[in-house]
Computed example of a mutant assay.
Amino acid sequence: MKMEYNSTQSVEQNIHDIISKFGLEATSEMINNTKDEWIIPNFLAPQTITMIYASAGAGKSLFTLYLAKFLLQENKFSQIHYLDADNSPRVLKDRNLNQILDSFKDSFHYYFIDKPKNGDILTHLSKSNDLDGALIIIDSIRNFINVDFTKDDKITSFLDKLQKLRNLGATIIFLHHQPKQSEEENNKAYKGSTAFMDSVDEGYYLSLIKEHSVLSASELFFTLEPQKFRFDMAVSNFIINTDNFKFKKDDSLLFANNDIARYTAEYVIKILQKHTDGLPKSKLIKELKDLAFRDDVEVYRKNSLWRFMDKFKNRLWTITRETKHNTIRYKLINS
């Protein structure tokens, strides 16, 4: 929905008249008629700004290319414009971009952008007359920014340009990088100012699994973790097949990050299915330890377990604090 402001008032008589020149006044009918639309449930909504970030080599561009193809296959967008200032034609040849372009000649437009910082392409895009319903992908945002990454006011001013495109009807995804991470642990931080996260509708940390016992040699598994959880956004798992271009969302957790996570998820679900009213923290961990000992498998323990449980809060189970007994209760959703 494009925002159309009332800018025709000739006399500024009161507060309402003045503010109405700069914004659209909310009405009960407007809010009631607002649809909870999804492009991909709990992952991508129309007319939003989404940041996807990860460390170098994590597969951000590959994932987003396959995502774009999937969205066109499913008729989610009539036009997708991919602005690439990060990758070379040689890299895209290896990813079979030519086959995707042949399949969607009239709807998928891929551009190798030269010197985007000097051209201020985003300002020019705001003058376009066909932004409504379009998807614009920017790879990566650092190549389009000519200001200090660490300055909130500079980044906010830059990202205002993306918000203007969104208000004119576009859906926007941009890719971003992380600072260098240690080998032991990724802190899931993104590079630069806090304004990056403040100015987007959702920011996803992307992680990649290249090898897993349940994946074929040509399959890659991506997990995208929301950092803001707006609009019921949730952790989303995707599998892509680099041989046949298949792209599917998989939330079964059979493809969790590793075997420890997979067993933990399967056992927790099994336990909570038996206890439809849920279980307090102490009883859940006892039953989980008993099952793991019986089957001689490793599962998450203590703090690792609670972090894992938090990761899928309101997606697979609810987590509530009972003040009466000062305990935390876990309950399977739809049980």
Rank of each mutant, 00 (worst) to 15 (best):
N6C: 04
K105C: 04
E29H: 09
S199F: 01
K151S: 10
S193A: 08
L62A: 10
A68H: 10
L162T: 01
D114M: 04
L131Q: 13
Y111S: 11
K21F: 04
S335Q: 12
T194L: 02
L165M: 07
N143L: 04
A265H: 01
S304Q: 12
G119P: 03
I39W: 08
E225L: 06
L44S: 03
L165T: 01
N98L: 05
T276E: 14
R294C: 02
F221E: 04
D243P: 01
A54Y: 00
A265E: 04
K248M: 06
W38K: 02
F174L: 08
Y267G: 00
D106E: 15
S103W: 10
N6Y: 07
T150K: 12
S252D: 15
K228T: 14
S216H: 14
N33T: 14
E322A: 04
D148W: 06
N33K: 10
F104G: 02
I113Q: 14
N32Y: 06
N14R: 11
A217D: 15
L316M: 10
I39D: 06
T123H: 08
N258T: 13
K313G: 06
L288I: 11
I285E: 15
E25M: 05
H16T: 15
F43T: 09
N326P: 02
N75C: 03
P46R: 12
I239K: 01
I155M: 00
L65Y: 08
D102A: 05
L67K: 00
D290K: 11
K324L: 05
K270E: 15
N257W: 08
W317C: 02
E74I: 09
K127W: 08
L220V: 09
L215E: 13
K324Y: 06
L208S: 11
A170I: 11
H176C: 06
L83N: 02
S282F: 09
T50R: 02
T27H: 09
R166I: 11
Q13R: 13
K180P: 02
T242R: 11
K105G: 07
T156I: 07
L92I: 09
S335F: 04
S126E: 14
D84L: 03
K313M: 05
L162E: 03
T123L: 03
T156S: 11
I145P: 02
N237T: 14
S7E: 15
L279M: 12
L83H: 06
G59H: 07
K93D: 14
K161D: 13
Y5G: 04
R315G: 04
F222H: 00
Y267H: 07
D102T: 12
A292K: 01
P89C: 05
D243G: 03
L288Q: 14
I145V: 12
P226F: 07
I240N: 00
Q99V: 06
L254H: 13
H16Y: 08
D139I: 05
E219M: 05
K191G: 04
Y66R: 01
I209Y: 03
N6R: 10
Y330N: 12
D17T: 13
A265F: 03
M233Q: 14
R294S: 11
